[in-house]
């Protein structure tokens, strides 16, 4: 997905999510959280669409502690990306 140019904002992704988690947990736990969320939301583990990623991030939000905080961070970055992408698309049309 495209970067939002004027805001220097990258699209959310599985890779970015795992990088955030490995700032607090080991890689194995980060990967297990991702797989748990995909299973719970019936989402493809290689999810790329904003809709799939939002489902995964919403699942993280439901977990207590740091994972819940990180889930909300990821979800809000996704919402920001989606809103700015819509604005950018409208302006270029």
């Amino acid at each position: 997905m495209d970067k939002i140019r004027n805001y220097n904002l990258e699209a959310p992704s599985k890779q970015k999510t795992l990088e955030v988690f490995t700032g607090y947990f080991n890689e194995e736990y980060a990967e297990s959280l991702w797989n748990e969320a995909c299973e719970a939301t019936a989402t493809n583990p290689e999810a790329e669409s904003l809709t799939e990623l939002e489902q995964i991030f919403t699942y993280f939000c439901s977990i207590k502690g740091k994972v819940g905080v990180q889930g909300m961070s990821m979800k809000m970055r996704l919402m920001t990306y989606r809103n700015l992408l819509a604005l950018q698309t409208n302006q270029s049309n």
Partner: peptide, 23 residues
């Protein structure tokens, strides 16, 4: 938060920031 700021309360926001309630 670790990767965003989230507004627990806000006054006067407009447009996409009002909708997102954070950056």
């Amino acid at each position: 938060l670790d990767d965003v700021q989230k507004f627990a309360a806000s006054e006067g926001l407009k447009g996409w920031i009002a909708e997102t309630q954070g950056t």
